[in-house]
Amino acid sequence: MYAFEFERPGSLDAAVKALQEEDAQALGGGQTLIPTLKQRLAMPSKLVSLKGIAELQGIAQEGDVLKVGGGSTHGAVARETKGIFAGLSLMASKIGDPAVRNRGTMGGSLANNDPAACYPAALMATRGTVVTNTREIAAEEYFQGLFTTALEEGEIITSIRFPLPEKSNYQKFEQPASRFPLVGVFVAKYGDRVGVGVTGASEDGVFAWKEAEEALAGNFAPEAVDDLWVSAEGMMSDLHGTAEYRAHLVKVMTKRAVAAAE
């Protein structure tokens, strides 16, 4: 790793200020950033740990919305959303491994926007909102391609707001080595609509499978997507799976998520 200064501010304001320094970078759980630093692929002048900031903590239901603090670990999300938001709890419980879940945070994951991260699928399916220290960003505006988001330099995700669905589920088909999703599909059913968020598959990162959303809104059953198919065009292709295979898995995982939704 290149050398850098380390700072652990105690408040959001202090963190925002610390991040104003040139090449300062926020550190969430570090489960992606630290391996990146070890490879010397990043050269921050300062790392600003968000771990000690009370404003980023807390998971709470607010009416028909679930608010998750940006600093919430995957472990906390898994535990504390059980019974409130089954699909999200299930998703969080399957990210990485137990030790990674004890460090990695939802804010960190969404800020990084790895094309194979899990949370983007949930945020997209629910059409949730990313809340930062300066504004609120709707899911569809937030994701802007691989590792790219609407976040400005120094902007911190303070919380994530998920409209609570009636039913939800997440199906992850794992890439055999990293255990990240080769394809992950989150399905969220609401009274008047259904959201289908797909991660791991597309060259543009997370996307909503709109045809399936429409079909499922009319009939929330696996058969509803039988006649739909996802184009392999624009899907990622690598040694773990071709574009055709990923496109195929999107449909299979969608059907399974619908069948398992609770």
Binding site: P176, A177, S178, R179, F180, D238, L239, H240
Partner: peptide, 26 residues
């Protein structure tokens, strides 16, 4: 049989240079 494979691309770059791409049995 099921997981592991060390793969180079045609230019000789190793595509499976970490446990993110070389699948170790768990």
């Amino acid at each position: 049989a099921l997981l592991e494979s060390c793969v180079y691309d045609e230019t000789g770059q190793l595509l499976t240079g970490t446990y993110m791409d070389y699948a170790m049995p768990r």
